[in-house]
């Protein structure tokens, strides 16, 4: 079998444009949440923006997550206001507004809104990420934000309750590379997301996948057809992710290392998964379909397989047959 051809089909069946209606619903709801935040927080908030995979052009249609970054002014919660107060104020507002129609959850740096299924069973999920500029009115110049890090069981280390980053820079960095290198970076990121979705609750974040793909491509000789390119990235992850000193710098703040978002066990698991995947596909090409399945909802029929058929012997017409317009 032609593995590259299969991978191209996988990407086609996962194109976000194939889920137009669901995408429209997400965009509409995202705009609604954005307007509600702006109305409630008035001049204390800058314009919220989408930072999810859709904004970076690396989305697949089996997992729709819209991240709505909401940049607040430094003094939005008083000159001595804390990041925790910002986070709690956004949570309280969203909970009050959406508690009837959605599950509102505190998450690590965001507040998750999981709307209950609509009349056709579609679920919309939007993560609101509150962030605060470093100094009053500085955001429009540097776009830097402090995000509050929520731990269910409390913050346990000094300075562990904040992440300094530049989300706009993160988006631009990945989007630029994914747009310029459509046939390698964008396709491979999407394929790795398809693979991740075959696993339940896999610890590797989408942002990690995006960064490690770019790093693998920057540090390897990427040539050949799609499978050759993907294989090179899988081999890079297998050989490097678990190495001491392996880092994945956040393009929004080089002090943040995304490699730290995985435990040593998680990294070992990821390296093992890459190794097993490569070996199974090496053993039998067909195994690629297990790791990188088509989206069954948009599966393309293999028209090359279709044939006219008889059940053997000389076909004899049925003795009596009626046709007509039944007036």
């Amino acid at each position: 079998m032609d593995k590259s051809l299969h991978l191209e089909t996988v990407i086609r069946t996962h194109q976000i444009t194939k889920e137009k209606q669901l995408l429209e619903k997400h965009i509409q709801k995202k705009n609604e949440v954005k307007e509600a935040l702006q109305e409630n927080f008035g001049c204390n908030i800058y314009s919220p923006f989408n930072s999810g995979s859709y904004a970076k052009n690396t989305a697949i249609n089996t997992k729709f997550d819209f991240d709505l970054v909401s940049p607040f002014k430094r003094n939005a919660f008083g000159s001595n206001g804390t990041l925790k107060e910002m986070y709690e104020a956004v949570y309280d507002f969203l909970f009050d507004k959406y508690k009837i129609e959605a599950e509102v959850k505190k998450q690590k740096v965001s507040i998750g809104l999981e709307f209950y299924p609509d009349s056709v069973g579609d679920r919309i999920k939007i993560d609101v990420v509150p962030g605060r500029e470093f100094n009053q009115d500085q955001y429009k110049d540097d776009e830097n934000l402090n995000l509050y890090v929520y731990y269910k069981y409390g913050n346990f280390a000094a300075d562990s309750e904040r992440i300094k980053t530049n989300v706009q820079m993160q988006i631009n960095n990945i989007k630029d590379r994914a747009d310029k290198e459509k046939d390698s970076i964008r396709k491979i990121i999407r394929l790795l997301k398809v693979w991740k979705n075959t696993k339940y609750n896999y610890p590797t974040k989408s942002f990690f996948i995006e960064l490690i793909t770019i790093k693998a491509i920057d540090n390897s000789d990427i040539t050949g057809k799609l499978w050759d390119k993907l294989k090179t990235v899988l081999e890079y992850i297998r050989d490097h992710v678990n190495n001491e000193g392996f880092t994945l710098k956040d393009p929004g703040n080089s002090s943040n290392d995304l490699a730290d978002t995985l435990t040593d066990n998680d990294k070992q698991q990821l390296a093992n998964d890459m190794k097993n995947m490569l070996e199974r596909i090496e053993e039998n090409d067909e195994n690629i379909k297990t790791y990188f399945p088509e989206n069954p909802k948009f599966k393309e029929e293999d028209k090359n397989k279709n044939k006219y058929g008889t059940n053997g012997g000389m076909p004899i017409p049925p003795p009596k047959l009626n046709f007509g317009l039944e007036k």
């Binding site: 058929g309 076909p315 017409p317 317009l325 039944e326």
Partner: peptide, 18 residues
């Protein structure tokens, strides 16, 4: 009626046509 005629053909063992 035409569609039911087609059904008759495929259900008829002698017709052998798929």
């Amino acid at each position: 009626t035409d569609i039911s005629a087609i059904n008759t053909i495929i259900q008829n063992h002698s017709a052998c046509l798929v």
